[in-house]
Design a protein around this nucleic acid. Sequence first.
DNA 1: TCTGGGGTCCTAGGACCC
DNA 2: TCTGGGGTCCTAGGACCC
Length: 483
Amino acid sequence: MSVAWGSIGGVRAAPTILHLDMDAFFAAAEQAAKPSLRGKPVVVGGLGPRGVVATASYEARRFGVHSAMPMGQARRLAPNAAYLVARFAFYRSISEQVMELLGRLSPLVEPLSLDEAFVDLEAGGVADDSASARAAGERLRADILAATGLTGSVGLAGSKMIAKIASEEAKPDGLVLIEPGTERELLGPRSVRILPGVGPATGEHLRRAGMTTVGDLVEAGEDELVRLLGKAHGASLYRMAQGYDDRPVVAERDAKSVSVEDTFDVDLHDRVRIRTEVERLAERCVGRLRASGHSGRTIVLKVRRYDFSTLTRSETLRGPTDDPVVVREAAARLLEAVDTTGGVRLLGVGVSGLADYTQEDLFAQFAEVAEAAAGGRDAGEAEAVAAEPAASLPGGPGQAAPVEERRWSPGQDVRHAVHGAGWVQGSGVGRVTVRFEEPWSAPGRVRTFAVDDPDLEPSEPLPLVRGTGGPERSEAAGGGAAA
DNA sequence: TCTGGGGTCCTAGGACCC
DNA sequence: TCTGGGGTCCTAGGACCC
């Protein structure tokens, strides 16, 4: 093997790959927005009967609450925590501020989610050794705190995998740099579960084969891992276990699918209602598809039954579509073949096989497909294809949002004509309790109103740091899964 | 008061084609 | 008259991640 340009075995010679992970992001954002919650247990997630925890603040984690835990269980563990709806538009606006700071370090920024990203510091020319990388990382943490009031943890290493492990190690509010060359001794004694791609199932699989540490995997050898886990998974795990990881930081990745799904508060039994929900989901899905500038060929219906068994049915069209009618009808067809006896807890509709055709390109595609269809056997299908692009042209991306009755959700931003900005602390029996405070104020006072008090109205989130742009716009507040 | 929502990637079998 | 093989597309399901 030749030593090419300071890279050995897929790991850089300098720790110039940075992984940023914001600390307890959703919960920390809520604490920053709501002074009375600072230092207190806060749980953000779905508040319905079937909700789960999205993020728990560090104070709540001490009670054993963690992500993906059913809300009911969280409430039992931490009955005095604040339970708040997830306000994604708000988190997105903070995320954009953070990503903008990352963009100043390098053109190669790879977001993994709202609160996580890789940055290639070398490509940005801001670091070429340990000292400069550490300085860039600390500067970034300070900039994020100044711009958003939130803390993030930074991992620095010669590869993505190790940088991510480093940021985990750095939490909360820290920075860890792992010197290239020390990966194997670091990984050896650790649980196999720290490797990306090893979840509960693979972890259990490996445990039954007598492997619990990363060192065990190296010792077992590639052939054994491939035999156990399959070609792709086994081979990549063997490389990871040795600390080899040459995956580049990739700035732009094309979306492969778009989907929406809803879990219902109570199982659906009525076939007509189920069909109506599928059609609504199909339309929501197309709204998102169009907003992203895509069309797609494969329509997927997802059904989770009363017993949590989940199935998908899919249908591939002869050409890509972004026509709500076509997607809705395909989804309805797929539903016909699904047995829903016993009830349905979740329905979902997705589109994959995406093409980023502009409308003009869609015309070209149309001509091609129509031609192919003319020579084909199935006249019915050809007709359906012919209907797609034509129908999709006049309609704009705007879709009518269903009018929903106003309900006050815990955590929601409101404004009162007399008392100013605040947030809903709770509601029930015709009353709504509001705490009046702002991100930069002292903890505020609580007042109670009638739910239909005309002086009280939903409002936009306030920026966390005074005078810094903040959220420019937000989608309808709430965004919970409640049907 | 058991288990969200949005994604990605991989595998495996059958159809179909050369 | 065993059992041909390889490539690609489609469908369904599963594991994993945040």
